[in-house]
Amino acid sequence: MRAIRATTTALLGVAALALTAPTAVAAVHGGSTPFGFTVTPSTVAPGGRVTLGVTNCASSATASSAVFDTVNIPSGRTGTATVDWDAKRGAVYQVSFTCNGTTGRTNLTVAAAATTATRAPTVSATSVAPAGVRGGLGGSMGGVGTGELAAGTALVVAAAAGTVWTARRRAEGRGH
């Protein structure tokens, strides 16, 4: 059981890293700007939504691109934009962030194929990893409650009574 839990934890860690990597890459593209910026997710389907974030900007900032309208981002908050439905699949578009007259740029990729999800799932610190299946133990690990025991007994008694009743009816039918 511990191996399954360790594997699950490792896979969740890799998934969290994969989901935060595009954000980290976008922040690196900031280059020499005194503020940081992110586009999450960095790949989105036409009509999908992206979250735009700016850090270390004392005033409100703006984000603009050829595939969505200009978005005002209040200081310390994030903004969202909907990518145009007619955005070219597989194309890479530039997103410009402006804070206090300084501009930084990063890329936004439009998904080449249709995707089912356009937003990155949020992971919170209170998420609990699934415990997994108790395979091969035949259900012997859990306790049996009184209600479960009574329901099981009632089913067995009903099945036995039905079998006896059917067998007696057939036996009576042969005698006549």
Rank of each mutant, 00 (worst) to 15 (best):
A154E: 06
G138P: 05
V14L: 12
Y93L: 12
W165R: 15
T43V: 14
G47Q: 01
Q94A: 15
D86F: 09
T116Q: 12
L108W: 00
G175H: 14
A27T: 12
V92A: 15
V157F: 08
A45D: 11
A171N: 10
A3W: 05
S42V: 09
T109W: 04
A18P: 04
R49V: 10
V14Y: 04
V133S: 06
S140G: 13
V39W: 06
L17Q: 13
L12F: 12
M141N: 15
T23M: 11
P121I: 07
G53Y: 03
S127D: 15
A91R: 11
A24V: 07
S65M: 06
A24R: 09
V39K: 04
A26K: 04
V67C: 02
D84R: 15
A24M: 08
A15L: 14
A16Q: 12
V50I: 12
A125C: 00
R49G: 00
A167K: 09
A26D: 10
T166E: 08
G145M: 05
G48F: 08
T80R: 04
F37H: 14
A63S: 06
G132E: 03
A151Y: 01
P41Y: 02
G13P: 03
G162V: 07
G145D: 09
T38W: 09
G104Q: 05
T163G: 15
R174C: 10
T55G: 12
F97E: 07
S124M: 09
T163H: 11
N56D: 14
G31K: 09
T7R: 11
T146V: 15
A129Q: 08
L52Q: 01
G30P: 11
G104K: 03
A15E: 14
L19S: 05
V39S: 10
A87I: 03
A63W: 02
T82A: 07
G79P: 01
G143S: 15
V128Q: 15
A63H: 01
S140H: 07
A154M: 02
L137S: 15
V157E: 02
A131D: 13
E148S: 14
L137N: 13
K88C: 03
G90R: 08
P34S: 14
M1T: 08
G173H: 12
T106R: 07
R170V: 10
N72S: 15
A10I: 02
P121N: 08
N100L: 10
Q94I: 08
L12W: 09
T40C: 02
T38A: 13
C99R: 05
G79Q: 01
L108F: 00
A111C: 01
A161G: 10
A16Y: 05
S32P: 02
R169L: 13
A120V: 13
T70E: 14
G53V: 04
G31M: 07
C57R: 03
L52K: 01
G138L: 14
T55A: 15
A15S: 13
S42K: 07
